[in-house]
Amino acid sequence: MSRTLKLAAVIGAITSLPIAPSVAAAENLRVVASFSIIADFAKNVGGDRVDIVTLVGPNGDAHVYEPKPADAATVGSADVVLVNGLQFEGFLQRLVEASATKAPIVELTKGGEVLRNTEEEGHHDQHKAAEGEGGHAAAAEEGHEEGHHHHGESDPHAWQSVHNAELYVKNIADAFCAADAAGCDTYRANAKSYGQQLEALEAEIKAAVAEIPEDKRTIITSHDAYKYFEHEYGIKFLAPEGVSTESEASASDVAALIKQIRQDKASAIFVENVTNPRLIEQIASETGLKVGGELYSDALSDKNGPAATYLEMMRHNITTIKGAILGS
């Protein structure tokens, strides 16, 4: 393995594959995944034909990640770079520039339905969300108001809908086929069998949600990472922080949320693996809600944790949500 890959392996996580490294280095597709969830998709599609280096590893927060010179070297020597897009990786442009890479930068959300956050920062319009109008074409109209000001941010957390995960997988298979035509049949076959697992997962999530009484389907997390989940499966999420963890929630945002929680009778509150639990603990103590556990939002757990793969992460999240609501 090259020194570059070795360096990067320390900061991120290298997905080890059941193949001798000497063979791998000579023939395998060198894939960089911007964060752990994408890396897991890529592993499922690429199988033993790809070597994957992950930039933002388990429990890491890609919103605020600072790229290192070693990351630029890793990207510089990649064959394919897989990213989420929709401004999830705020570091992407400067990293790609510094890397001078010739590899395609593949945005896996491309071609998908995009939710937009049309609200002013910290202002959470519950009625809008409840009516299922939390974005879409309405975003463009809102942007009109102030011309050069807020157009409404795109919500990057598309993987929180399993339906979208299928699109990520399709886009990965397309990218791998373009970079390695000889492996295309394998990638398509892998994508198909993984797609079946995703379908089964989606059915499980829907069945679990169906067991939760409709008036108990409002819960709290720390940042707006679950709007796709909400849109797809009908659990309503409120959060003190917006779609990026970059700016902290203000005291008035938190106060407004606490008021809203009391009105809405939120059923449960959760900490997230990528954010500091302090704020959620504070809101929990002020509203009398008990913290219902840890949800995985923008990153997988490490390999010993409960969410080492995407399938495990989604199962863990819905099980934790259901358990906390029904147990409350």
Partner: peptide, 9 residues
């Protein structure tokens, strides 16, 4: 599907 990314852009 209501609005795809391309048309929103």
């Amino acid at each position: 599907m209501r609005t795809n990314w391309a048309s929103a852009t």
